[in-house]
Design a protein around this nucleic acid. Structure first.
Lengths: 119, 119
DNA sequence: TGAATATGAAACCAATTAGTTTCGTATTTG
DNA sequence: CAAATACGAAACTAATTGGTTTCATATTCA
């Protein structure tokens, strides 16, 4: 597929500014200058963030005339989803427990914390 | 609930060492010394990583005698899942497209890349 | 063609991060 | 009680990060 991503996706989304950029690009693709209007930093700084997002394949770039359109590539987030999926078993267990408590009406008001209590 | 997490969860999982620690603790809770046997760094360094995981509520600590048992708190990852869920709409679109291609047998061998091609 | 626009590379800087070693304090055990 | 064990705080360091400004290049437009 594309070149091996130099940047870790976990690293890429660690920065709040970059997460906001992804969210912005989810609405529409746009060039650097437009993107930088949404952030309190220089266009160059924005450009650097975009490079990191690009190197982790979270955004793609298309040159149109003298501008470069940055576009969200959400599929890159599948790696994150996959990573997360391993841990779902733990929530599932909690959910199962919670479901049990609710169904057996062990208390009047269900307190989420109770799910974690030692039995 | 617990004290406001000083550490961002995105930040916490950005580090590969910390991700490995979470994976290790998924198998069982254990004290620092045992954990540090799995990593090529000092016990103190491991301890610092655990503090970050702890401050983002990804692990909890229970003091047992002179040791402290670190335990995975996978529910903290729900924040990540929620963040991710917003972007699922994009994969879903791709999936819908792929499903269409498969069902209408547009080519002998389905090439995943085709899904992204301009129409 | 010449001015304006869009962009990133380069050099630089301050703050943060991930590690180290050294030391102090609990707790257990002989 | 004294020695051993478990742990983190403190002080320090090197590398990385997130930002800056300045400059060069490509493209468009009048």
């Amino acid at each position: 597929m594309s070149a091996a991503s130099k940047y870790d996706i976990f690293q890429a989304i660690a920065d709040p500014t970059r997460r906001k950029m992804l969210r912005l690009l989810a609405d529409d693709e746009m060039p650097v200058t437009v993107i930088s209007n949404h952030f309190p930093m220089s266009r160059t700084a924005v450009s650097k963030h975009l490079r990191i997002l690009s190197e982790s394949n979270l955004v793609s770039v298309e040159k149109v005339g003298r501008e470069k359109r940055y576009k969200l590539q959400a599929e890159a987030l599948l790696e994150l989803k996959q990573w997360l999926s391993f841990y779902e078993q733990f929530w599932d267990n909690k959910m199962t427990k919670l479901k049990y408590i609710v169904e057996h009406d062990e208390s009047e008001t269900v307190q989420i914390q109770d799910v974690n209590k030692k039995s």
